[in-house]
Design a protein around this nucleic acid. Structure first.
Length: 609
RNA sequence: GCCGGAGUAGCUCAGUCGGUAGAGCAGUGCUUUCGUAAAGCAAAGGUCGGGAGUUCAAUUCUCCCCUCCGGCUCCA
């Protein structure tokens, strides 16, 4: 069992004070649970018995509750542990339905029932009351609320949460709080959250004109603006080049398919809820594709395959559509229409491990180039204790798939964790999580070794001995989707992209309109060298133009005035670094071309906060 | 999908306890012609997210819908 440290005890105890404060306002509220979480705590309340006239719980009541909690802290409430038997517990919590449910479960599991009494040692001044509450709680707690720094915690939000995390259960009202040892730490944490907010890809996407959404087009369907499309294009170009070098071939498949394809794959009817409703044409149902695999399998099956072609690596930047629940949509990170960096590798069983290792190596290369230092792999396996109908295929197939996946991960000497029950319905999957410099983590792609779909699609190849054999399939998407990857990179770089990905690489800034002509000359030169440049010929002061250029996070501003025109030079100003002085145009071109070709990472914004 | 909050000019936001709205920035025009993060002036810009209802009158009140935000659940 994980050791509970002091601050966690404090956080946990604060959750109890939160419960006391809420019960004072709403005596009819029923308590759910109140555990600690990263940086803080929460408590769940069922407010359904609270009279309408009391108005329910709204976020604007948080300061009031927080104030009461501080008063409770200062009273020096004590926590006292007690172990009680089932009968007594049932009696104590007879009007507390959620606690009663937990007690029955604890009893069933033959565990000890512990309660904590929170009480004031003395009469509360100016009242005739003495506070005393008894909670069902595993603990541990601090001894007295005197240990809590009243200035180092804060209630942060009100949210709905299902009882025991199951959407079939009733929804309770959850209050979240954060708590630290000192006011300074609390302040730092809040500042960190503000920095996270500044880097939010939705905010930067608007400021930098990268993408937008439209009510008329629909939720979760991003529209890429010219600058965002440039990033997309550059990323894709690089991925395609890389794939070519690594022996991949590219294919293209339609966005729709007859339902027959998903009957074969087994996705219908199990995943129908996640598909856009079918289009009915001439009595035939067509679906928008939610994944590219079945289409690719059709390409594999287009003719007889020989072992000489294998591993056959078919890659596609494939657009897919999934009808994600409305409440789950989030900027570019969770959308309904997106373009996957997909590929399916058809491989001889004996070469599957080697091929899987190559795929992992490709991940390493990609993340290194993008400056993503922290990433991890989680291998989702079948939950052996809970083999419901969720999984296709037989035990032998699963054992083999899991064994080979583990073998490949171990041979790549990559750190990975195993998550039992995390498998796809047709096989184990290695999910890749990447972490940005500010610590936000996203699932970016999955690599899967699939022994099941070859059966369903009746895939085969003729082996060395002229015998028909079934290949294995590796599904892989190291860059995930354009949408999620670019959303991630916006936050990772805080909008200051490496120059090779920057929508505008150079902005030409004449110091007055007199030098616009020289600006055009420089612009033409840059365009000849395939550099994405623009001319700021606005009638504005130099200071204003520089401000604009910096705000747009353009890697280089070229300042042009009389000096430069006369010397045939450019005044170089580098993003985040300021004035670098005059340079000959050839010198600048060489410098920038190098940085682009080397895919240099930005140095100025790549710091952890 | 569920719980809660929100939607006013391109952006950020103010305002109307029911009498059809305002600022800053951006954009446009003019003046200025500038040396490394915000020059000045002027005009313009809105079915107050959409629909229905109540009312003499709705951006404001009620209901439904859409979208966004924070969570929960989900994520082949």
């Amino acid at each position: 069992m994980k050791k509970i440290n002091e601050i966690e005890k404090i956080r946990h105890s604060l959750s109890h004070l939160l419960a006391i404060a809420v019960l004072e306002i709403f005596p009819n509220a029923k308590l759910g649970i109140g555990p600690i979480i990263e940086n803080g705590f929460y408590y769940d309340f069922d407010l359904s018995a609270v009279a309408e006239s009391e108005g329910g719980l709204t976020p604007d009541q948080l300061p009031k509750i927080e104030k009461r909690m501080r008063e409770l802290v200062k009273m020096g409430l004590l926590f006292q542990k007690e172990i009680i038997d089932f009968a007594k517990a049932k009696k104590t919590f007879k009007n507390k339905p959620y606690k009663l449910e937990l007690i029955k479960e604890i009893n069933k599991n033959k565990q000890k029932i512990t309660v904590y009494k929170t009480f004031a040692k003395y009469q509360i001044p100016n009242t005739k009351y003495q506070i005393q509450f008894t909670y069902l709680c595993a603990g541990p707690h601090i001894k007295s609320t005197k240990e809590i720094n009243p200035a180092a915690f804060k209630l942060t939000k009100v949210a709905g949460a299902y009882w025991r995390g199951d959407e079939k259960n009733k929804m309770l009202t959850r209050i979240y709080g954060i708590a630290f040892n000192s006011e300074k730490e609390l302040k730092e944490h809040i500042e960190m959250l503000e920095e996270v907010e500044k880097r939010d890809h939705r905010k930067l996407g608007k400021e930098l004109d990268l993408f937008t959404f439209s009510d008329e087009v629909g939720a979760g369907l991003p529209l890429w603006l010219p600058k965002g499309e440039t990033i997309r294009h550059e990323l894709e170009k690089w991925a395609r080049e890389t794939e070519k070098k690594w022996g991949y071939q590219h294919i293209a498949t339609p966005h729709i398919t007859k339902s027959k394809l998903y009957e074969i794959s087994g996705h219908l009817p199990y995943y129908k809820d996640d598909l856009y409703s079918p289009i009915n044409i001439e009595g035939e149902e067509y679906y928008l594709k939610p994944m590219n695999c079945p289409h690719t399998h059709m390409i594999y099956n287009a003719r007889l395959r020989s072992y000489r072609e294998l591993p056959l690596r078919l890659a596609e930047y494939g657009q897919v559509y999934r009808f994600e629940k409305s409440g789950t949509l989030h900027g570019l990170m969770r959308v309904r229409g997106f373009c996957q960096n997909d590929a399916h590798i058809y491989v001889q069983p004996e070469k599957a491990v080697e091929e899987f290792i190559n795929v992992i190596k490709m991940h390493e290369y990609y993340y290194k180039t993008l400056g993503i230092q922290n990433w991890r792999v989680v291998l989702g396996t079948r939950d052996r204790k809970n083999l419901r109908k969720k999984y296709h295929g037989n035990d032998a197939m699963w054992d083999m798939a899991e064994k080979l996946s583990k073998e490949a991960l171990e041979k790549s000497s990559i750190k990975y964790e195993i998550e039992e029950g995390g498998a796809a319905h047709y096989g184990p999957k290695a999910d890749i999580y990447i972490q940005s410099v500010i610590g936000k983590e996203y699932a970016i792609g999955t690599d899967q070794l699939d022994l099941y779909m070859p059966q369903r699609f009746n895939l085969s190849y003729i082996d060395k001995n002229g015998k028909e054999t079934m290949p294995y399939i590796i599904h892989r998407a190291p860059l995930g989707s354009h949408e999620r990857m670019i959303g991630f990179l916006i936050e990772h770089y805080a909008g200051a992209f490496p120059i090779w990905l920057s929508p505008i690489q150079v902005r030409i800034v004449p110091i007055s309109e007199k030098f616009n002509k020289y600006g055009i000359e420089i612009l033409e030169k840059l365009k000849q060298f395939d550099i994405r440049a623009e001319l700021d010929d606005n009638n504005e002061t130099l200071g204003k133009k520089i401000r604009e250029g910096e705000k747009q996070k353009t890697p280089y501003l070229l300042i042009l005035g009389g000096r430069e025109e006369e010397n045939k030079t450019v005044g170089v100003r580098q993003r985040g670094k300021g004035d670098m002085g005059e340079m000959k145009m050839v010198e600048f071109l060489e410098k920038i071309k190098n940085e682009i070709n080397n895919k240099d990472l930005p140095k100025e914004n790549n710091k952890k906060l």
